[in-house]
Design a protein around this nucleic acid. Structure first.
Lengths: 219, 219
DNA sequence: CGGCCTTTTGACAGCTACTGCCACTTCTGG
DNA sequence: CCAGAAGTGGCAGTAGCTGTCAAAAGGCCG
């Protein structure tokens, strides 16, 4: 779920200790590139920031930047979050209604993300702003959204006993991730004044019940 | 709605007659570029087909190709269909439930598209296949999908008396266009064996009622 | 510690999508 | 028919991205 959180590498915390020097360096480089990118983008905007500048600021070669991130947008988006979400979803009790499980997991994820444990709030806001403003980034976000959607399809399929590539399952999952995307964009467009978790919850209501309240006539 | 139909220029039919020579030429060039592109892509694949080849095959300069289509993906996707759909939606009786209007309009659109009036069936299939297979194309399709979504937001807002940028409205429209997208991809993945209109209808059911049928427990 | 193997890195060359810019041709309205 | 507008082609340049290859750095042995 690129939509709201990323970088599950927990900066310089406990888990990194026992790793080889190589691994640690890789993580540092990755973080350096990302940090440099965020800074440059905030200073001069997305398009004006070139890979070369990023490389220079991060003190690596352009080649290395491409090695870490296959596309420029990925520096901003990258997503180590799906597996966590998948595990969380599987951990929910099997008899819980699907939408309930989703709500719980998503709410937890958002809250954890917003707590700033993985990533600074500025970075989260910058990302959601870029998603709302820069077409290329939004585009890539949707791309990665569809990956998340596939993951969700598998789980929904397991839960409901349907096939993972069944049309209805696909449409449903697309609706869920799309809703989260819209929540994120809406959040950015309103200058992050709202509580993201609440926004997500509201969109999930729509996915679940349609656009019912407020509509005068029947359904 | 890039998802299923495009090119509302009706090749060489009646409407083109009274246009100036300039306009007619423009339409012809546009069509030539698109036809060349479709042919080349079918022969050698999307990535292997360069703008230069397209320009040569269409007997124009690369500059001209870019002038007509801002991005390569747009040659395959371009979308003169939204206005028609918007008009069709506005033409529905105001007291008809929203989802009904959408169903009618979308079904009509799909059927008209499938009739081959605007575009050959091969081209439609190629496009949906490219959407399913080439990430760049799918990505761009989602991009244009979100434009369609915005249009739909305006209409839904008018109909329901809500604000067009209200979160719920956005989420709903995203769900609808996303569903159509999934229908289109599903169609391509199953070698276009199904009836596209039926697939769309099934996804709209999901948008409207959630993933209810088949789920054992409560909602 | 020293040497060997693997991984990572940087530099370079190259391709392609895409963007101005300017001169030239082609249409259009008066 | 002729000014002015609109469309086209060619050219130079930028930036994202890919591949290759030799050099450097980390890891693992004896």
């Amino acid at each position: 779920m690129t939509t709201m959180a990323a970088t599950a590498h927990s900066s310089t915390s406990a888990a990194t200790a026992h790793l080889g020097l190589r691994e640690r360096k890789k993580i540092k480089t990755r973080a350096a590139i990302r940090r440099a990118t965020y800074r440059l983008i905030m200073e001069q905007g997305y398009d004006a920031t070139t890979i070369e500048q990023i490389a220079e600021a991060a003190e690596v070669s352009p080649s290395t930047v491409f090695r870490y991130f296959p596309a420029k947008e990925d520096i901003v988006l990258t997503d180590e979050y799906d597996p966590l979400m998948e595990a969380a979803l599987r951990a929910r009790p099997a008899d819980e209604p699907l939408t309930m499980s989703l709500r719980h997991v998503i709410r937890d994820a958002v809250e954890q993300a917003m707590s700033g444990e993985f990533e600074s709030p500025e970075e989260q806001r910058l990302r959601s702003r870029l998603m709302a403003e820069v077409p290329a980034v939004r585009s890539r976000a949707m791309e990665s959204m569809s990956v998340t959607g596939r993951m969700m399809c598998r789980i929904v399929a397991e839960r409901t006993g349907r096939a993972p590539d069944e049309l209805e399952v696909r449409a449903y999952c697309m609706g869920v991730v799309g809703a989260m995307m819209e929540a994120s964009i809406h959040w950015a467009e309103n200058d992050h004044r709202d509580n993201l978790a609440d926004l997500v919850e509201r969109t999930l209501d729509v996915v679940e019940h349609g656009l019912t309240p407020g509509k005068p006539a029947a359904s």
